[in-house]
Design a protein around this nucleic acid. Structure first.
Lengths: 146, 146
DNA sequence: CAATAAACTTGCATTTTGCAAGTGATAATA
DNA sequence: TATTATCACTTGCAAAATGCAAGTTTATTG
């Protein structure tokens, strides 16, 4: 089990204490930009995460309040992982990562392709659009529970 | 030795292949925002990086073209690590990390304190100011060599 | 009700991390 | 000039994390 420790009161190191590894942000990417929500879907990503690592990271994301785990009934996928506002707030971070990555490794690309294009031509609006879309979806979910 | 592998052509995963760990970005933080350049200075950071990890990460940063290692003479510090444009281009990523971290962990703070304040009140200008300052310093260094 | 599938868990070898101690080269000091 | 100190590491080793394959459990479909 990966243990959680706060190494300092630096916001950067605090953030890295949570997702400073090779896998966690890829799961967030899948949830936020690819609309994935099932365990199986995360397993299918190109980077081939190991199943025990995925289970571990999902539990950390849940414990840190970045995802909520929903139990469904009568469905093939029995659990669904949804982003919280705290995860949605990572969109600007990931957006800058995408731009940096593609600047220095130009043969990289995103799913969907329009994401990278959008960030290049109008970063602010692209970030805002994704943020609002996911926030709206989250609010609809919340309304249903009332 | 940590080995470098490209897990996919995703710009995010490509970026994480380089600095997807708990330490690398903290070294970049020290270089960029705290003006550190000597091995000893990195060792003194609050997070207490182990000396073998620091040596390993510096060699990776150098190999990936994020820092250049300068040999000095007649000085106390015999080697100095300077950021390349590729490292300077990480400023927006780190800036967003700072904002995210401080939003969800409000008792965190930055060195210098003005950095966090600046990002909160005028993100774009703060990023631009740091970028230009470091780029100018880099160019002065380059001129000297001509 | 048997077979399939989803979401894990377990076991184990390999790799990475963390900690302490040691080393070699240069620089300051007596 | 000899000695001491400092810097930038390297090495050794125990502990933790990762990667891979196989197994388990619960629900669902034919």
């Amino acid at each position: 089990m990966k243990k959680f420790t706060n190494r300092s009161l630096c916001p950067i190191s605090t953030a890295l204490d949570i997702f400073g590894d090779k896998w966690t942000l890829l799961i967030v990417r899948d949830i936020i930009f690819e609309g994935k929500s099932a365990y199986k879907e995360f397993m299918q990503s190109e980077e081939k995460i190991a199943t025990n690592i995925l289970a571990n990271r999902l539990s950390i994301l849940e414990a840190q309040g970045l995802v909520i785990k929903e139990k469904t009934t009568g469905n093939r996928s029995r659990y669904l992982y949804h982003p919280t506002p705290k995860a949605i707030a990572l969109i600007p971070v990931i957006a800058e990562l995408i731009l940096w990555g593609n600047t220095y490794y130009p043969d990289t690309y995103t799913h969907p392709e329009s994401l990278l294009a959008g960030l290049k031509t109008d970063k602010m609006n692209t970030i805002q659009a994704y943020t609002e879309k996911l926030t709206a979806r989250l609010n609809r979910k919340k309304d249903k529970l009332d």
